[in-house]
């Protein structure tokens, strides 16, 4: 009896989470402009979307920023996480605190802090400032993700590898790298998510020349209901589903390949 209750509750929450999205997706195929009633199946909003250059530009920019900032943040952050794991240095505590606090600061404070420093340094707001900002808020998350996932690895295995004849290079290749990849991939995905999702910071630090998705949608929505936005959201959602499926497959294959290498006799 309680089992039904539990499943029901979970189901309800998921319905709550997905209903608005589901609505968007359904309406992207709805002939009706206002989505109040079903007027018929169509893909016209998708075709309109494809011809709407400004939306496509904005979406493209957001994706570009997300991929670039995720990658840069992952590189810098992974290096920092490895250093934090393996070395002890003065100021380690200070750095940890800085990372921790950066993570918790609300977006709005981060946003104006970045605005202030950019203007003080004389930057023009645009692609570069946007990129720097996204890297900045992703960085602490990367460090924490990689650090905590790698912390659970028994550090004695590096000595074991050395004991068995692996110098630094071989140890890196056969031990550190394979174990680090899942953590690094997770960090990259997290950064990508944070970047794509961001509204507040982007609103402050981008310039008129570089349009991004949230701001584009914002201006469209202010004017009125825009069915192309439904189509766009659906497309974005589909892309993310695809990316995650790929990541999942990669993980499965990654684990399987090491099992293929030897024989049983």
């Amino acid at each position: 009896m309680t089992r039904i209750f539990r499943i029901g509750f979970i189901g309800l929450i998921f319905a709550y989470i997905y209903a608005p999205l589901g609505l968007l997706i359904v309406n992207s195929f709805n002939l009706s402009r206002y989505g109040n009633s079903w007027k018929g199946l169509t893909t016209q909003w998708y075709s309109k979307l494809l011809t709407n250059q400004s939306i496509l530009d904005a979406a493209g920019h957001s994706l570009m920023i997300a991929v670039t900032s995720a990658t840069v943040a992952t590189v810098i952050g992974t290096l920092a996480a490895v250093a934090l794991l393996r070395f002890n240095f003065r100021g380690k505590g200070a750095m940890s605190s800085l990372i921790f606090v950066s993570m918790l600061t609300p977006d709005i404070v981060t946003a104006i802090a970045l605005l202030v420093i950019f203007l003080s340094l004389g930057f023009t707001l645009g692609f570069l400032t946007l990129l720097i900002s996204h890297i900045t808020f992703c960085l602490p998350f990367v460090i924490v993700t990689v650090f905590s996932r790698m912390k659970s690895i028994d550090s004695a295995i590096f000595e074991a590898a050395q004991d068995l004849g692996a110098g630094d290079g071989l140890s890196f290749r056969y031990i550190l790298l394979p174990l680090a990849i899942p953590a690094v991939a997770a960090a990259w995905l997290l950064s990508f998510t944070l970047s794509i999702d961001d509204v507040i910071v982007s609103a402050f630090v981008t310039g008129p020349g570089y349009d991004i998705l949230p701001l584009k949608v914002y201006s469209m929505v202010r004017v009125g209901v825009s069915p192309e936005v439904n189509a766009l959201s659906t497309v974005l959602f589909a892309i993310s589903l695809f990316l995650v499926a790929v990541a999942h497959f990669l993980q499965k294959y990654g684990l399987a390949s090491s099992a293929k290498q030897q024989s049983t006799c």
């Binding site: 609505l23 968007l24 949230p214 949608v217 936005v229 959201s233 993310s240 995650v244």
Partner: peptide
């Protein structure tokens, strides 16, 4: 994972969906 998944659409877009959802003619 399923709970996090919607995050892969921009927050603004999701708010837009909510405004739809709560509107006079919304669901």
């Amino acid at each position: 994972f399923l709970m996090i998944l919607p995050f892969w659409t921009n927050s603004l877009v999701r708010i837009y969906a909510i405004s739809f959802f709560l509107g006079k003619k919304g669901l």
